[in-house]
Amino acid sequence: MFKRVALFLATNLAVLVLLGAVMSILQGVFGIRLGNQGGLLVMAAVFGFGGSLISLLMSKWMAKRSTGAHVITQPRNEAEQWLLQTVQRQAQAAGVGMPEVAIYEAPEINAFATGANRNNALVAVSTGLLRAMSREEAEAVLAHEVSHVANGDMVTMALVQGVLNTFVIVLSRVVGRVIDGFLSGGRSEGGGIGYFVSVMVLDMIFGLFASMIAMWFSRHREFRADAGGAHLAGREKMIAALQRLGQNQGHSTLPSQVQAFGISGAVGHGLRRLFLTHPPLEERIQALRDAQPEPVG
């Protein structure tokens, strides 16, 4: 688990540092100065949102390629027929277009949803889930994933990451300018070595805090998807599904690009929890038990 968290953080920080370096170069080439706050903000938004939106648009393709998922077009057996019918029924109940339904080869109990559009998404389940879960439990997992689609969670996370990236890029340069001015006694105009070193360090520091905020949003959306799954499939089925997931909690073969969208995530305690994409299963189960029942009719 720690290796996956470290890899996730390292990847995000590397992206921010790379964006920061490109931003600094373009500032010099195009003459964008920190005094021109409008120009800096526009450039930061372009780079801050660019990577997130591109990843969002490519999410379905990347998920299929990275997991080797088989999209069900014509059901080959009764299990595939059941998967299609269940997702179709839940999608209609949630008011979204029929997602593509896929199966990918993996030993653990897991599933994920992704896609840039509520009406053009992908819901995939592992072969391990189909082997280990009852139909009632699998139905709840599918409802959880359909709820992610209905809530627009993929788009929300991309926008949150874009805002955070933009914030990191702008703030690191504003603070970097102040530090550079202090170190140079006011002689530098923002292009000294102190500026570039400060910006690189600040990109990493602010990027770390941005990752914590993004992970908080990610954990919050899991509670919402659990509640949506309980609404579509039934609370007891959703609780039973989460309890079954506890058999392989913390074990996932999903590629890093898709791990945040799996129903089962890594586990951790203390400071590690700040960087987890999913809340602990016991907290998710307790939240479902504490939820007020919806009025009938």
Rank of each mutant, 00 (worst) to 15 (best):
F206K: 15
H278W: 07
S188H: 01
T11Q: 12
I285Q: 05
N248W: 01
M58T: 13
S52L: 01
Q37F: 06
E105S: 13
V201A: 15
L242S: 01
W61D: 07
A150H: 00
A116N: 12
G234C: 04
N110S: 10
G95W: 12
I32Q: 09
L232S: 09
Q257N: 13
E137F: 09
L245I: 05
H148V: 00
Q74S: 08
R118P: 11
T277S: 15
N77L: 13
I205F: 02
Q81H: 09
G115E: 04
I103T: 03
V197P: 03
L7K: 10
Q92C: 02
K237P: 02
E100A: 15
A132I: 01
T73D: 00
V42F: 04
L202K: 07
V46Q: 07
I263K: 07
V22I: 13
V71C: 08
P293F: 02
R244S: 08
R89N: 00
Y104Q: 06
P255V: 10
P295Y: 02
S172E: 07
V17Y: 03
Q243I: 06
L208W: 13
E78C: 14
S172A: 15
A113Y: 05
V174G: 08
A241P: 04
A44I: 08
M238R: 03
A158C: 00
V149L: 02
S264V: 09
G31W: 13
M98V: 10
V258P: 05
Q243R: 12
G50H: 10
G181N: 07
E78I: 14
R118G: 10
R131C: 00
F275I: 06
A102Y: 02
F196Q: 04
S256A: 01
S52P: 05
Q90C: 01
K237T: 04
H148P: 01
R235I: 04
L171T: 13
K60H: 11
V163E: 04
E145G: 14
F8S: 12
F196G: 03
H220I: 01
I285D: 01
A102W: 00
R4K: 14
F2D: 06
G38L: 10
G246E: 02
A287R: 04
G246P: 03
R187K: 15
P280V: 13
A233L: 00
F209T: 05
V5F: 03
M43H: 06
E236V: 00
G39I: 02
V101M: 03
T73W: 00
G270I: 03
A94C: 02
L34F: 09
G194V: 06
A124T: 13
T86Y: 11
G190E: 10
P280D: 15
V125L: 12
G268F: 09
R173G: 13
S66K: 03
N36C: 05
I239Q: 05
G229V: 11
A230W: 04
E100K: 09
I54D: 01
